[in-house]
Nucleic acid binder design. Sequence first.
DNA 1: CTAGAAATGCTCATTTGGAGCATTTCTATG
DNA 2: CATAGAAATGCTCCAAATGAGCATTTCTAG
Lengths: 339, 339
Amino acid sequence: MTKASAVRREPHIRKDTPSVEIGLNAAIVSVHNDEPVVLVVRETADAVGAADSLPSGPFAPREHRTLEIGLRTWVREQTGLDFGYVEQLYTFGDRGRHALAEDREPHVVSIGYLALTHIESTDDLQRGTWHSWYQYFPWEDWRRGRPEILDRDIIPRLKSWAEMPPMRNSPNRPVERIDRLRMCFAADGGAWDEEKVLDRYELLYEAGLVAEARRDRPELAIANSDGEQLGTAMIYDHRRILATAISRVRAKIKYRPVIFELMPAEFTLFELQKTVEAILGPHLHKQNFRRLVESAGLVEPTGQVKTRTGGRPAKLFRFRREVLLERPAPGVRVKPGRA
Amino acid sequence: MTKASAVRREPHIRKDTPSVEIGLNAAIVSVHNDEPVVLVVRETADAVGAADSLPSGPFAPREHRTLEIGLRTWVREQTGLDFGYVEQLYTFGDRGRHALAEDREPHVVSIGYLALTHIESTDDLQRGTWHSWYQYFPWEDWRRGRPEILDRDIIPRLKSWAEMPPMRNSPNRPVERIDRLRMCFAADGGAWDEEKVLDRYELLYEAGLVAEARRDRPELAIANSDGEQLGTAMIYDHRRILATAISRVRAKIKYRPVIFELMPAEFTLFELQKTVEAILGPHLHKQNFRRLVESAGLVEPTGQVKTRTGGRPAKLFRFRREVLLERPAPGVRVKPGRA
DNA sequence: CTAGAAATGCTCATTTGGAGCATTTCTATG
DNA sequence: CATAGAAATGCTCCAAATGAGCATTTCTAG
């Protein structure tokens, strides 16, 4: 390979570049009744293979001044919802990976976004279908202890996949598979890391255990047709985008005060804790949680109290914005990997 | 706004969507002689307005099976370098933001990547131009204490920008500007957060203080033509991508063992510390750093020692891969915000 | 042989984080 | 009205992690 002499003069302007379409996809997350939920647009069920999808649409540079404006436009059109907080997650170049490989389809690159919102009104509730995110990822639901589906369905099937001789053309040696299984699913005694949602989904996809994998690589369907469905499938790569979203929120609330995007203006500390636990999984010591958020300066009392809590009235708090100016990375710094 | 009834049937396939070109850009980072460096492709200087750029090229879905393969292809072609570790950073929808707004140009969306590599040979050194990243961001260089450019040029000019009445059409109220200034640049007594590289660059861009802003919005050029250049400019949005890359590495080495991508196979703990300090800024207590990486299980001794270190010979260590299986988020957990 | 520079080993005071006991103050109920 | 039950809150204790610095060991240069 020659060196810098090979530099092309104008690498950015090529007339013969085939066109690419950009899809914008929003994982809109909220917490309702202590349940983490995501806004899905249900496709009509009369079509065969209909599946849930995230609000989404193509980026039209002439109409949308920025990617984010395009996203907000599509979401507003499809659900009527105006969300506040949004951040970009990731750009996937192979959505519905092999399924759309036919050369006549325009190649679609999809950009996933995470939006956080608080459901204020029943109106908000009816703007689409809010589904618990655990419907798509039942193995992530540790609220009632370690989910059975792990030891009953997932780990055994992944184990046999990991021990299988890797297919030709696959760069994965078996040792790597077994290691990834251990890392992602805490197979032998390791600690469960609640942030590895995406890694787990991608492992299941590679192993051909989620419906999307069988959809994209029909040759897998025969081998893995038995056994329980692992979560509800979604259209294209939307479940992967949702997995990315969950990973991101779970990581981010620890060093950015984004949890307050999910709260009303005033709340009790226990309500805040319940919301954090909805996102991360329930494992927080009540008194220590209180000490944590108060001493971090994340909240301040409003002076009001809330009665009919079932016990002693609780002080109401609000988010203390000044914390952003005081600390470099303010967030609910619960320790990772103890769900 | 109506609700879910407005859902479009096939939001992903629109024949009338204008074409978009995707640019792939690599910030290839290394550490050479304790200096953090990035691989730039220098444009010929004979053209007016020539500027440094990152290795980059358009994504061609027919030729490139994935985005990442496309990126590697362009980098190999332009520099001859094969890097190992790479991760996607962010997708920018408005590169060279207003400059290319002419409707006839194809709209370009650029995806930035971060690659980490160790410079093995002098051959690697000659594959392009390795520039210290502080050439582009002199205000990030705290190796000899707080950089003078901050108090001499940056903060005063940002202060007057923050106090200026916001332009019409701008949603920023002055109070927000002053707060962002405080957050990003630790204006009054706050702690400098070494991870906020991108935030600082974007603030300078908005304030019209970097050359790219004057290039994209010529009306700013008059107001801000005086004063020192703030760092070397780059083509399109490449400096923004580099800022994103620096932010990401600085954050990531704290919870992922990516620092070892920058190291040779064997190294002394002090060499490791120097590399970390090159990335983060120098502020580490030697003995505690050693305790940190050893007790975290990040490294293991090879049994060899390295002499001619200028003093007592140093034990050689290597990265201990098993740590990935043992800990959820292994990294050099130095405290944030103390550079 | 000696000074200087690094590498290494250890100690000590603080801070932070995990657990649990004890008290206070509501609501629901007989 | 008195009492049980449920939460909210206040505090204490202990162990682990972190920040600083002193002391020793073992090279190289001169």
